[in-house]
Design a protein around this nucleic acid. Structure first.
Length: 342
DNA sequence: CTCCTGTCAC
DNA sequence: GTGACGGGAG
């Protein structure tokens, strides 16, 4: 879990797929976001001018009226209305969202200007001294501990405590008392369950993999407590192999808000992180698969929050179908209050 | 009240 | 697909 992965990934990759969309026309000059801006760019935000937004709406409306067969999806009443109403450019039916690279660049800038909790992880803290086998095991343990746990600080400390007690290896973890593990990892979510899982994982690693961790995605998934999210993360962090996108709750939520992922054959968003992963992988260039996670996680923690997203602060809201649509709290409208009745 | 870099059993 | 696992923060 290193931030360096984010930093080292090129901002843009080449386009392996054709972008067939209305915006293939050159945009108005004002809205041209410099592509391939280098990392040190101190360029100000890409907040579009209102004038540009207006013109874009006009362009969309105009395009809708044309009979271009390539864009017949635009004639769908729903999309048409959508485009007119909200100034949003939508994605193709086959899922290659237009302007995704601008969105990513915009998010990257927001991420660099505003610090996210996820950035305060000290990657592999104290793990550098470990042997490769132990380091991989530590990555697996750390990934397990991180799930549903707020702040990498807590999870980092738990891992640190395990390390200090010499439990960051399959051999020692296998012998350790479950209650001991439980107390050492305490602040993390679901610590009781995870303590048991850690022992089981250690035993499996010891008996089947000579104290190492499984080296394939499928074998990782067989471990108790290891699901798709953790398995992909571990493949990246421990084995430096990218088998797929690591989709957590943030990637899932943000991707859906952006209209980046659709259920096959529908215009509806995905319902599970796994659906999101598959959908994202269909169009997102592989070069971005690693960096997209930290990018969207930090974005999701600070701006595109689950509750009351801060759309006003978001510089890519013009590309977001969901911008400013979640203003009211769901509890305020249709919730009953049993407490008061008593 | 919901949410947290999810996963598992039912 | 739904609930449980956990406790704390917003």
């Amino acid at each position: 879990m290193s931030l360096s992965l984010l930093k080292h990934t090129p901002f843009f990759s080449s386009f392996p797929f054709p972008i067939r969309f209305i915006s293939s026309k050159p945009m108005p000059k004002e809205s041209n976001i410099p592509l391939l801006q280098k990392s040190g760019s101190e360029v100000d935000g890409i907040v579009p001018k209102k004038r540009v937004r207006k013109r874009r709406v006009e362009m969309i409306a105009k395009e809708v009226k044309t009979e271009s067969p390539d864009e017949k999806f635009l004639r769908h009443p729903e999309i048409e209305d959508f485009a007119k109403k909200s100034d949003h450019i939508y994605s193709q039916s086959i899922q290659s969202p237009s302007n995704w690279e601008r969105v990513i660049e915009g998010i990257r800038r927001m991420r660099s200007s505003e610090h996210a909790p996820v950035d305060s992880i000290d990657p592999d803290e104290g793990m550098n001294s470990l042997q490769p086998k132990e380091r991989r095991f530590a990555e697996l343990v750390g990934s397990l501990l991180s799930s549903q746990t707020k702040g990498h600080v807590t999870h980092g400390k738990s891992t640190q405590r395990l390390l200090e007690n010499g439990l960051l290896s399959a051999e020692t973890m296998d012998k350790a008392d479950e209650a001991t593990i439980k107390s050492l990892i305490y602040p993390v979510g679901f610590y009781t369950r995870k303590a048991r899982q850690l022992k089981q994982v250690a035993k499996i690693c010891l008996s089947k993999y000579d104290g190492d961790i499984p080296s394939t995605l499928d074998d990782l998934l067989l471990l108790p407590g290891v699901g798709p999210k953790i398995a992909h993360l571990v493949m990246i962090m421990a084995w430096n192999k990218v088998e797929g996108i690591c989709v957590d709750t943030h990637v899932h939520r943000v991707s859906n808000r952006l209209g980046w992922v659709l259920r096959p054959g529908t215009k509806q968003g995905t319902r599970s992180p796994e659906e999101t992963r598959v959908s994202l992988q269909q169009w997102l260039p592989k070069e971005e698969w690693v960096s997209i996670n930290l990018l969207l996680v930090g974005f999701g923690q600070t701006i595109c929050t689950p509750l009351r997203p801060r759309c006003a602060k978001c510089t890519v809201s013009e590309f977001c179908p969901s911008a400013f649509t979640e203003i009211s709290s769901p509890a305020s409208t249709s919730r009953i209050r049993p407490k008061k009745k008593v």
